[in-house]
């Protein structure tokens, strides 16, 4: 049997918030096979963002372990996580806060390539200008975008910049945390199409976090439903979507606003 891309065992994460303790993640087990597209859905506070932050190595679990391609990452010090930083890239919800307004787009996109940790993992002599041109083309932004600043772009274009930055170090895994929630519905379709195309063209493994089941259904072939720090339902997206196994999933499905024409 081949080793899964990610294997997580009994992940628990507690936060201290003032005097109270919050159990954000409660004994979660998870396996992700390479090339899959996993959607994680749930309401605010269900632990979905905490889970992906742990997978990306941006945070450490209170207890539990994570293996990435067979290597345990939960016990490694930051200086030895370079391979993970190069292989896993993230796109966040709001490109207004995830892009530095004082940096030119070209510098933003090539920044991961300049990281000491990531640089060592990349094949020697990656030309930054060439890679910049490649990823700008991949996300369908004008070739001269590199010299401009984020505020000169619209919301949808800024999310493309964030995606281009994530693609720059040629990652194996793309983690998108609410990638279209801050965007207009009219722009949402473009960014979703872009993600679908990129994942197919570059053979990426995709992890999408969203409170919107329709977005996840469109992008992902596997689905995990989270509530209060636990995965309450997991499986093939179409199965969960058409035959939800828990009342909670049914409630999430019922909450999707549908166009109402009666009355």
């Amino acid at each position: 049997m081949t080793e899964p891309l990610y294997r997580a065992e009994q992940l628990t994460r507690r936060y201290r918030n003032g005097g109270t303790e919050v159990l954000a993640l409660d004994n979660v087990d998870l396996t992700i096979e390479p090339g899959r597209r996993l959607g994680i859905v749930g309401e605010s506070g269900s632990g979905k963002s905490t889970l992906v932050r742990l997978l990306a190595g941006l945070d450490r679990p209170t207890s539990g372990r994570i293996w990435f391609e067979g290597t345990e990452i939960t016990s490694l010090p930051e200086r030895r996580l370079g391979f993970l930083r190069a292989a896993v890239q993230m796109v966040f919800q709001d490109p207004r806060s995830s892009l530095n307004p004082r940096m030119r787009v070209g510098d933003i996109i090539t920044e991961p390539l300049r990281s000491r940790l990531v640089r060592r993992q990349l094949p020697g002599g990656v030309d930054h200008a060439t890679r910049l041109a490649e990823v700008l083309e991949a996300v369908d932004l004008p070739a001269d975008s590199g010299g401009r600043y984020p505020h000169e772009f619209s919301g949808g274009q800024r999310q493309r910049i964030a995606i281009a930055r994530a693609l720059a170090p040629k990652p194996e895994i793309l983690i998108a945390d609410e990638p279209v929630s801050a965007l207009d519905v009219s722009v949402r379709a473009q960014v979703l199409n872009l993600l679908t195309d990129l994942v197919a063209a570059q053979g990426l493994t995709l992890i999408v976090v969203s409170h919107d089941l329709m977005v996840v259904r469109h992008l992902c072939d596997q689905l995990a439903v989270m509530r209060a720090g636990r995965i309450v339902e997991q499986g093939d997206t179409e199965t969960v979507y058409t035959r939800p196994g828990t009342d909670y999933t049914r409630a999430l499905l019922a909450a999707i606003p549908r166009i109402r024409t009666a009355g």
Binding site: V185, S186, R188, A189, Q190, L192, N193, T196, M214, V215, R217, H218, L219, D221, T237, E238, R258, I259
Partner: peptide
């Protein structure tokens, strides 16, 4: 664009 459910998952979504 308002109706994601009309497109088969993974297929290209219509845009404005």
């Amino acid at each position: 664009t308002a109706r994601l459910e009309l497109t088969r998952p993974g297929q290209r979504l219509p845009t404005v």
